[in-house]
């Protein structure tokens, strides 16, 4: 089940989007999210859909792979759709008890679903085309100004990148420890809340111990490879804007302006 989550996963191929500067992609994603939030009419949605389709095509990531990522939000989607479907006042279609479905509800729910799907797909494109390291590099550089006021930007981004590296390892480890304890008769499923919480101890203690051991090892390995913080460090993949980034910025600005324009005019 955890394997199905494509959100936050990198898809290793070569495309224009893959090569684009992470800062550009971060900006593009932000612009896109903003456009979705101000979207309230069909033309705007159409523009957003067009933007999305072009981005997906440019990323060269198979659509199938991307759609698989939507599985993880199905429940969230169903909840928000049914809320909107039944709780929006307006012209009633039919009524069961206090629940009534309205035309406005249908329209609102549909738009809501589209908005959510667009949102997830849009941010998935960012993570599918950007390695977590590039992403943290991008954030580090974009938020670099915070360093001047004492925020340890380099350290935080290094921590994020290490966390991303170790999440899959720890998930696998959780599964292993869980099975090992189940082989000793542990029961993680039945019982009330307190019993369930207590049952977690044999899982969490070994997991924490393992995480600390890994942290110690990793710190040693980093030191052995001359790591001493951000000072004097060079970059293998330094962030440099290319022409494609300038074009992308322009496109994003035009798109944002168009969306805002439509919102005002329509």
């Amino acid at each position: 089940m955890l394997r199905d989550i494509t959100l936050g996963q990198y898809y290793p191929i070569d495309s224009v989007l893959h090569r684009m500067d992470p800062r550009t992609k971060l900006f593009g994603t932000m612009a896109y999210i903003v456009s979705l939030f101000i979207a309230d009419s069909l033309p705007v949605y159409a523009a957003a859909a067009l933007f999305l389709v072009i981005a997906i095509r440019m990323s060269k990531v198979p659509v199938k792979f991307m759609v698989r990522g939507l599985k993880s939000i199905v429940i969230l989607l169903l909840i928000s759709v049914s809320f909107n479907l039944f709780l929006t006042p307006g012209t009633t279609i039919f009524k069961i008890g206090f629940l009534q479905m309205t035309w406005e509800g249908v329209e609102f729910a549909a738009l809501m679903a589209v908005r959510l799907i667009f949102l997830v797909l849009g941010s998935t494109i960012l993570t599918l085309t950007t390695t977590p390291n590039q992403l943290t590099d991008g954030l580090e550089k974009s938020l670099g100004f915070l360093g001047k006021v004492g925020v340890p930007v380099h350290e935080v981004s290094m921590m994020m990148s290490i966390a991303l590296r170790f999440i899959p390892i720890l998930i696998e480890e959780t599964d292993k420890i869980m099975k090992a304890q189940m082989a000793r008769g542990a029961d993680f499923e039945t019982g009330n809340l307190i019993q369930k919480a207590k049952a977690m101890v044999p899982l969490l203690v070994p997991l924490f111990i393992s995480a600390f051991r890994r942290a110690t090892d990793l710190a040693m390995a980093m030191e052995a490879r001359c790591y001493r913080g951000g000072d004097g460090r060079t970059k293998m993949k330094p962030l440099r804007y290319e022409n494609r980034d300038r074009v992308a910025y322009a496109v994003c600005f035009v798109y944002l302006a168009a969306v805002i324009g439509m919102k005002i005019i329509l």
Binding site: A221, R225, T234, M236
Partner: peptide, 16 residues
């Protein structure tokens, strides 16, 4: 292994 991509990990030492 510190990097999330093989080549980025190999570059970690020289970067430092």
């Amino acid at each position: 292994i510190i990097g999330n991509v093989v080549e980025e990990d190999v570059g970690f030492g020289p970067e430092n």
